[in-house]
C-alpha cells in the first residue's frame, strides 16, 4: 500500500504494522465488515416482511392459513436456529434446481435423486456452471439472506402477533361501530397503533440479529469470521512476506470489540427512538416526560 512496503523483511515496529495491516488480504477483511452490514440492511426489512405475513396468517379466519402461521411462529421455540441456517439454503437450492429441471429439461429420463446424489441437467444448475464468479457469490449470499429472513421472520411474527393482540379491543370495536370492514379496521386502526407495542420486542430482535451475523461463516460466505481465521493463522516466511505466529486470538478479540460496539450503539439508538416515540403518548414513559417538562 505504502511506498516503503516493497521489502517488509527490512521493516520493524509501527512501520511494519502499517504495511501488514494494509495488505490486499487485510483490505478484503475490512470489506467483509461491509458484507455484515449489507446482510443486516437487507435482512432486517425482509424479516419484518416475513414476520408481518406470519402474524397476519396466524390471525387469519381461514383455518389452514392460521395453522401455517401458528406453526411458523411456534417452531423457532423448539428447534435451534442453527439447524435452520444449515437446512434452509440447501433445501431452497435443491427446490429451485428441481423446479428449473422440470421446466428446462422435460424429457430427462433419469430420476433426480440417485442414491446419494442429486442430479439435475446442466441447464437447470443454479447458478449455471458457466456463470462468472460474482454470480456464484451473489447467489450464495442471497440464499443466506433468505435463511436469515426465514428464521428472524418467525421471531418477528411472534413479536408482531403479540403487538396486534395488545392493541385495545375497544379500538377495533369502535372501528366496527363506524361501519369499517375488517380489512379497513386492520389497515387503518390496528396496524398504525401496533408499532408502539412492537418496538421493545423489535429492538430486542435487532440485537439478536446483530449477534447472529457471524453465522454467515457457516453458510460458506467469506465474512469477517472467515477472514479472521485466515489472516490470524500462523504464516511462515515461505508463503508470506509477513511471517507471524498464531494470532487468531487477537483477530477474534478485535471481532468481539466490534460486536460489543455495535450492540452498544444500537442500544443507545433504540433508547433515543423510544424516547422520541413516547413523546406525547398516553403511556408511562410519555407521562414521565410530560411531568419532567412541567
Amino acid at each position: 500500500m505504502f511506498s516503503y512496503c516493497t521489502d517488509p523483511s527490512t521493516l520493524s515496529g509501527l512501520t511494519w504494522l502499517s504495511c501488514y495491516l494494509t495488505t490486499g488480504k487485510h483490505i478484503a477483511f475490512y470489506a467483509s465488515f461491509g458484507t455484515v452490514m449489507l446482510l443486516l440492511a437487507i435482512t432486517a426489512p425482509a424479516a419484518l416482511t416475513f414476520g408481518f405475513l406470519g402474524a397476519m396468517a396466524a390471525r387469519s379466519h381461514i383455518a389452514p392459513l392460521r395453522w401455517i402461521g401458528k406453526i411458523y411462529t411456534a417452531m423457532v421455540r423448539g428447534i435451534p436456529d442453527i439447524a435452520f441456517f444449515l437446512f434452509v439454503p440447501i433445501a431452497l437450492d435443491q427446490g429451485l434446481e428441481y423446479l428449473r429441471h422440470r421446466w428446462k429439461c422435460p424429457d430427462w429420463g433419469e430420476a433426480v435423486r440417485q442414491g446419494n446424489d442429486f442430479v439435475v441437467c446442466a441447464e437447470a444448475k443454479l447458478p449455471l456452471s458457466t456463470a462468472p464468479q460474482w454470480v456464484h457469490e451473489g447467489y450464495g449470499f442471497t440464499l443466506a439472506v433468505l435463511a436469515f429472513a426465514f428464521v428472524f421472520g418467525a421471531f418477528a411474527a411472534n413479536v408482531l402477533y403479540g403487538a396486534m393482540q395488545a392493541v385495545p379491543k375497544a379500538q377495533i370495536e369502535t372501528a366496527a361501530a363506524y361501519g369499517m370492514t375488517q380489512r379497513q379496521s386492520f389497515w387503518r386502526i390496528l396496524v398504525p397503533q401496533m408499532w408502539v407495542y412492537a418496538l421493545p420486542g423489535l429492538s430486542n430482535l435487532w440485537q439478536i440479529l446483530v449477534k447472529a451475523t457471524p453465522l454467515l461463516f457457516l453458510l460458506g460466505i467469506e465474512d469477517i469470521v472467515y477472514w479472521a481465521r485466515e489472516l490470524g493463522g500462523s504464516k511462515t516466511a515461505r508463503f508470506s512476506d509477513y511471517p507471524h505466529g498464531d494470532w487468531r486470538m487477537w483477530y477474534f478479540l478485535g471481532l468481539l470489540v466490534f460486536y460489543l460496539l455495535l450492540t452498544w450503539l444500537s442500544e443507545k439508538g433504540f433508547s433515543r427512538l423510544m424516547t422520541r416515540l413516547s413523546h406525547g403518548q398516553a403511556t408511562m414513559a410519555g407521562e414521565a416526560q410530560r411531568k419532567a417538562a412541567a
Binding site: 449477534k211 447472529a212 451475523t213 457471524p214 453465522l215 461463516f217 469470521v225 479472521a228 481465521r229 487468531r248 486470538m249 477474534f252 478479540l253 471481532l255 468481539l256 460486536y259 460489543l260 450492540t263
Partner: peptide, 9 residues
C-alpha cells in the same frame, strides 16, 4: 457479543 465469537476466541 455473539456466542459464536466467544467460542472461537
Amino acid at each position: 457479543s455473539p456466542l459464536f465469537i466467544q467460542f472461537f476466541l
